[in-house]
Nucleic acid binder design. Structure first.
Length: 124
RNA sequence: UCAGACGGCCGGGCGGCCGCUGGCCCGCGAGCGAUCGCGGGCUGGAGGAAAGUCCGGGCUCCACGGGACUACGGUGCCGGUCAACGACCGGCGGGGGCGACCCCAGGGAAAGUGCCACAGAGAACAGACCGCCCGGACGGCUUCGGCCCGCCGGGCAAGGGUGAAACGGUGGGGUAAGGGCCCACCGCGCUUCCGGCAACGGCGGCGGCACGGCAAACCCCACCGGGAGCAAGGCCGAAUAGGGGUGGACGGCGAGGCGCCGAAAGGCGUUGUCGCAGGGGCGGUCCCGCCCUUCCGCCCGGGUUGGCCGCGCGAAGCCCGCAGCGAUGCGGGUUCCAGAGGAAUGGCCGUCCGUGCCCGGCAACGGGUGCGACAGAACCCGGCUUACAGGCCGUCUGGCGCC
């Protein structure tokens, strides 16, 4: 699979992927650990040991389509900037948007994510 | 300059770093293959409403037998535009505004049924509370002319009052008082003629008033209308239930075929080939018509998970010209302009713009800080409706000021 001299995985961290199937979301929700912060809710469950996969959920309770899109994009950006540096692997994560996700200061949102990852045991 | 009417347009700009996603090119890799993955370069990437899903189409699949009846839904002045429309344009009629202009679900109430609350005397072939007028007898007052109050009989519907609406309106004549009782004008109905493609309008004549309103109450009339929707639909494609072929088994009635027995009539056996009956389907009902309809073994082709297509060159956008009051049409030039699929267009920063607040300053201004509407393509078009910070342009109306 991964050749010796290939340009290969640049960071030793994680070949990341996206959760896209409804059954994956249900599995993480029912078996995973939860960690809530003002800007987001994290659900984490063990997954493929070679992958770190992330899914995003923003319900209609949060707002209309524009508000939901903005919340999900900010969560995606926070995950992109945070996860590769942690070295975490072998987890399926679900990030859930809340009312505060869209308006929260971005640096604070990232701090929320780091705190939630520690609480759920994904990172030490 | 103030107030207002109508039409059109914009809806943050520029730049940097890190990302996402479509296309093209190059290189590499995976797979039998359809295809997919990785790296690099170039390049594209939300709206005027993308929204609500209220109409009309394109596209796709299904039903696409014949006849009759019934039901259901929609539209509703006239002419035009359009692929089509319930949309749009131009008119007509009615209503509102000093005006520019705005609003109207605008066929039929002499086909029938029904409703018209409350108030009010009376609400549909109505009615007399207050009131007006005439006559009568009794009582009271009297300046002896009469007057007033109550009562009885009769006439009237003008005035008051109620109501959304009171059985035409205003004025005059007439009358005891009144009344289309009579007259003029207005309204209403019918109508000759004229103008207009038409809705309708105008001049005149006749009618003495009859025919209240509501059809977004039922209804009547005219016209229109198959159903479902991109989760449509198509292609590639494991395991298990259903389809086609084939072999075997069973059968409610009849016919036919085949075999055997018999001279023959006929009998016995066998057979899913045909018909009938029974059951079911073809938007609702009926008639005719059509189609389907048992079980087990073997072989072959096809649906769900998944992948790909459908999926953007179009009733397309922009700029001119011509025709038309206009909707729009015709002609020429030019551009290629999002295509996701747990769903790309994001995060952070600088600067400018608009605006609120604070500080300094007489002021111009400077510094700091906050805010920037409604809202996110999901097959695609044409409309309608609804939401929207702030701003720009044009035409017009009324008032005030100036020349």
């Amino acid at each position: 699979m991964s050749g010796a001299a290939d340009p290969a995985p640049p960071v030793p961290g994680a070949p990341a992927g996206r959760l896209k199937k409804r059954r994956d979301f249900l599995r993480v929700a029912s078996r995973g650990k939860r960690a809530a912060r003002p800007g987001l809710v994290l659900q984490a469950a063990p997954g493929d040991p070679c992958l770190l996969r992330v899914g995003f959920t923003v319900t209609k309770k949060v707002g209309n389509a524009v508000v939901r899109n903005r919340a999900r994009r900010r969560l995606k950006e926070a995950a992109r900037l945070t996860l590769p540096g942690t070295g975490a692997i072998g987890w399926d994560l679900v990030l859930i948007g809340r009312d505060g996700t869209g308006a929260r200061d971005f640096a604070t949102l990232i701090a929320d994510l780091r705190g939630a990852l520690r609480q759920a045991g994904v990172t030490p």
